[in-house]
Design a protein around this nucleic acid. Structure first.
Lengths: 361, 361
DNA sequence: CCGATCGCGGTAAGCGCTTACCAAAACGGT
DNA sequence: ACCGTTTTGGTAAGCGCTTACCGCGATCGG
């Protein structure tokens, strides 16, 4: 036992291939990179040698000389292991589904272009996150940053040296941003709750205060409510944190304080809604009978909750895929057509808003 | 508009730092790598210059010369976009939660050591997946492979050149493997179903036939059933694919065929159980009243299903973290103490097996 | 039939780091 | 003060690729 890997052999280099094929390394390189230079006969010899030796070029060497690593970095915020463990959501939040699905989208798009993903997470309050992000930047051709991983000044600084695309952030002079149509989706939801269901009191359970998505969603909801003369509730008591545990905590506290709940609660995202529904059910409050609940994102689990969660669908994978494509064009051209890319969203009516099971489209 | 990134400046190199500090690049390098060589005074000068210029070494150059990329590759199997879209699970399967949580575990462990993750997925039936995996291998110091991404012969070949750790696979001469204690966990579950609940007929809804985990789980269940004289059902009709859609399909087909369901259905994993419960509920069959259901893995959503899913908890994040640590030791020492690392599992009793809500652990 | 042109492919110069090797400086003991 | 050590830090040789540059033989027009 215990001699695993004791005899790793260095992989063949381009020199080995050149020798085997009886040509120079330049020719091997040219064949591999599809230049029109080498003629068919040479090409065949090289290709044969490559196949025989199982040669695959070293990424680092290639990156160094060609200044192209074919790697894009993705940075997201990680919820620290223990933070939410007080409740039933100990591990639930570990699966930040939204993030994972986006990353999957980035990955698929990257794959198509021969790129790989370099993944890194930063702690919520990691003080020198920027150093780690910088390190990742130096290992990749560009960076995709999820919401709120870097403060604006650092972002500006970073984007001087590397192409950067943000997700659910705001576009700047030097960075592009990709997001879902918060206003449109939330507007649709609000009208549905108000017109179709006739709810007269609606609360917004907020996400992080510094999240642009959160702000836009809140605003759209508030506007619709105001326009329809519906009572809109929000405020410090309704401050969540995009996590299920946060949503549950808000509801529990409200209930303990004896606050009368509004007829409908719109959550900043689905994770929050999960916590809200959990808390509501713990307190014996019927959803949607007594209180309607809606989320935002339409993450995969939304349809498996009881009642099934009404939500705004964002094209999550496309969000990621788009971010990648934008970044890639920045890497190549250094100038995307547009800085602020908005993808459409749409209301998915399920049971939690009061629609019948299997209701709507 | 459209001039984003038009003016990227090349990041400072080690030469710039050396010049600014009035020393040679060798000294800069030594300071940065914590050699004991440079004396305090020199060290300070260098550090100051590094800070001023915001220097961060280029990953490729470093990798090339030091033969250490500080990157580990992670490869998993991707479910093709459209494959499951016929059912209600269109996007549900996109979130291969188990995989994502493991990756999160790898990432956290890697982070601690200053490593980053290079993520790549392969299609189920991608014929030259090995080429893409090889490319990843050449961009990293070692590889962690999820279940069934590579056929054994390719694996052997790959592991000649790169340290490789597999997850939920089998250890070989040249690769280490990390997995949960399938036998122990399944045994515990089986005894619970048989002794505590007294179920007399049990079926096993299998995962992929070539998955070691699946085989081990099946075996443990079969043994316990045989030992207790319980009727054990399995076979082609009970063949799933680790996906929710697969589980649902098996149940639907069984029901259409008029087969009488056993008292308890044990699923190869939680995803499958999700599909099973969904199908059962569609057909108006009560869980656990008429049929008890149990899963394996205890993925985060398990507790949010109705009824809450009884499952075997695997320390998912730890599985990933352990895989990383093993790999790292292989990268450094080229010889892990043990090839087959088994992490403990334990039964989590929830409602779907027939236990009362909130019933014991 | 010969010089201009072109296709092919080799030589060599980096890319930005790490580190072996060595010279100079600093130190210690007699 | 001198010689043997030990520190300190500079010089230069790569790491494995890509590509600019250039020479060579083949091709072609007049």
């Amino acid at each position: 036992m215990a001699d695993t890997q004791s005899n790793i052999q260095a992989p063949p280099t381009i020199y080995d291939v050149a020798r085997a094929a009886g040509v120079s390394i330049a020719s091997v390189s040219r064949v591999l990179n599809g230049h029109r230079n080498p003629r068919q006969e040479t090409r065949d010899r090289v290709l044969r040698a490559v196949a025989e030796l199982g040669f695959v070029p070293d990424g680092a060497a290639r990156a160094l000389s060609a200044r192209l690593k074919e790697v894009v970095g993705v940075v997201f915020r990680r919820v620290p292991w223990g933070e939410t463990s007080e409740s039933a959501f100990a591990e639930e939040d570990e699966s930040l589904q939204f993030t994972d699905v986006i990353n999957r989208g980035i990955e698929v798009a990257a794959q198509r272009r021969g790129y790989n993903l370099l993944i890194g997470s930063v702690d919520v309050d990691e003080h020198d996150a920027h150093r780690r992000i910088m390190t990742m930047a130096r290992k990749s051709d560009g960076l995709i940053l999820h919401d709120r991983v870097l403060e604006p000044s650092r972002l500006a600084q970073l984007s001087q040296h590397v192409p950067v695309v943000t997700l659910a952030g705001v576009a700047t002079q030097t960075t592009a941003n990709v997001r879902g149509d918060n206003g449109g989706g939330m507007g649709e939801l609000a009208r549905h709750l108000i017109r179709d269901h006739g709810y007269l009191t609606i609360a917004y359970l907020a996400g992080h205060a510094d999240s642009p998505d959160n702000l836009a969603r809140r605003l759209a909801l508030a506007e619709q409510a105001a326009g329809a003369g519906v009572l809109f509730t929000e405020g410090p008591q309704w401050q969540g944190n995009y996590l299920a545990s946060g949503g549950a905590k808000v509801i529990s506290r409200l209930l303990v304080d004896g606050v009368r709940l509004p007829r409908a609660i719109v959550c900043a995202n689905d994770q929050t809604a999960v916590g809200v529904m959990h808390a509501l059910s713990q307190h014996g409050i019927d959803v949607p009978g007594e209180v309607a609940v809606a989320g935002f994102d339409d993450i995969p689990v939304a349809r498996h909750l009881r009642p099934q969660l009404t939500s705004i669908r964002q094209p999550i994978q496309e969000l990621g895929a788009t971010a990648f494509e934008v970044l890639r064009s920045m890497i190549a051209n250094r100038a995307p057509q547009d800085h602020d890319i908005v993808l459409p969203t749409r209301l998915i009516r399920r049971e939690s808003c009061g629609c019948p099971p299997d209701g709507g489209r």
